[in-house]
């Protein structure tokens, strides 16, 4: 037997899950808070996977929601149009998971396609090309009547729940963390720091850039699939440029290259954006000012600017909390 220990991250995850589930079951956290938790977890998947492309491999991608769209539409088409799954179907959950994985795989395929331009392009140019790809995906979805066109893909069964989303988010974190702390991850980091130097010491930059895009896209596709099966609709406008920008903001607010930071930012900014509703409504009630929901995003944007001004490297910088670090095996 190898020297097996119960991994620290798993322990924390199980504890976190148990606490949240307990709070939900006892009704301390109502359906609204759990819905925000679910949304945060979907953002965790998106942000961690984008961090792999942007933060860890240093490839500036602005089309992340395009991958999510592929995952959402492919899995949604499978469960809605082809299999016509109903929740009382005994094979439903298995088929649902299969659909989510197929959605992720399709997104990964698109990710490889988009990864290739990254071989020739850098920085802002790559950003604008990935933005273009994302918009092309959105435009295509808008014009394919089979998946609803501008009406969106409707009637998707509700299969996503806290448990499924939590497991997916956890697996995303584990895979990306293990990758980053493996020799492959070191190779990716070296490309970010100095591509020329990395190539000189024998790193196959082509392979790793495409790999980063493929894995990042895979998880984005999973996130899209889970979101579609949570809100029961997939619509092209959800996956446009602004959606990608929101994910990008979370990557940078959390700290480039820090998985811990990505997780914190995904939760923090999702809760912030919701919390501001209540803050503004209470403020209006307390002061009698005629302010409403339209001011929420004004405050959100201001806070974002302040975070960047006063904590430029993001909340976590490039550091990780200890639980994210794979512990050394003791002999």
């Amino acid at each position: 037997m190898r020297n097996l220990r119960f991994p620290r991250l798993l322990a924390y995850a199980v504890a976190f899950y148990a606490v949240l589930q307990l709070l939900a079951v006892t009704g301390v956290f109502n359906g609204y808070i759990m819905h925000i938790v679910n949304q945060s977890l979907i953002y965790v998947i998106l942000v961690v996977s984008l961090n792999l492309i942007n933060g860890i491999s240093g490839q500036f991608s602005l089309g992340h929601m395009g991958f999510a769209a592929v995952g959402a539409y492919v899995s949604g088409t499978l469960t809605t149009i082809i299999w016509k799954l109903a929740p009382d179907n005994p094979a439903a959950i298995v088929l649902f998971i299969a659909a989510v994985i197929v959605g992720g795989a399709a997104a990964a395929l698109v990710g490889v396609l988009i990864g290739f331009p990254s071989l020739r392009l850098k920085g802002d140019y790559l950003a604008i090309v990935t933005l273009g790809f994302g918009e092309i995906i959105r435009t295509m979805l808008n014009n394919i009547d089979y998946v609803g066109g501008p009406r969106g893909l409707l009637g998707i069964p509700k299969f996503s729940n806290f448990t499924v989303i939590f497991i997916a988010a956890f697996l995303t974190i584990v895979v990306v963390r293990n990758l980053v702390q493996s020799s492959h991850g070191r190779a990716m980091l070296s490309i970010r720091e100095n591509e020329l130097a990395a190539e000189l010491v024998g790193v196959n930059s082509t392979k790793y850039k495409v790999l980063a895009f493929a894995i990042g896209a895979f998880f984005a596709g999973i996130a899209g699939a889970l979101l579609a099966h949570l809100i029961q609709i997939a619509h092209p406008t959800q996956y446009g440029f602004m959606g990608s920008v929101l994910v990008l903001i979370m990557v940078y607010a959390g700290g480039v290259g820090s998985i811990t930071g990505s997780v914190i930012a995904a939760f923090g900014l999702t809760f912030l954006s919701e919390g501001l509703r209540i803050v503004i409504d209470s403020l209006a009630a307390a002061t009698g000012l005629p302010i409403g929901g339209e001011w929420r995003m004004v405050v959100y944007a201001l806070l974002l600017i302040f975070i960047m001004l006063f904590r430029t490297e993001g909340l976590m910088g490039n550091k990780e909390l200890k639980i994210m670090v794979i512990e050394e095996r003791k002999a």
């Binding site: 359906g31 609204y32 979101l227 809100i231 959800q238 509703r277």
Partner: peptide
């Protein structure tokens, strides 16, 4: 509640209003 014209935001605010 503001839904921003976004389905995901819509699902959130309906949950908020009800729950």
């Amino acid at each position: 509640a503001d839904d921003k014209g976004d389905p995901a935001e819509g699902a959130t605010v309906y949950t908020k209003l009800i729950q």
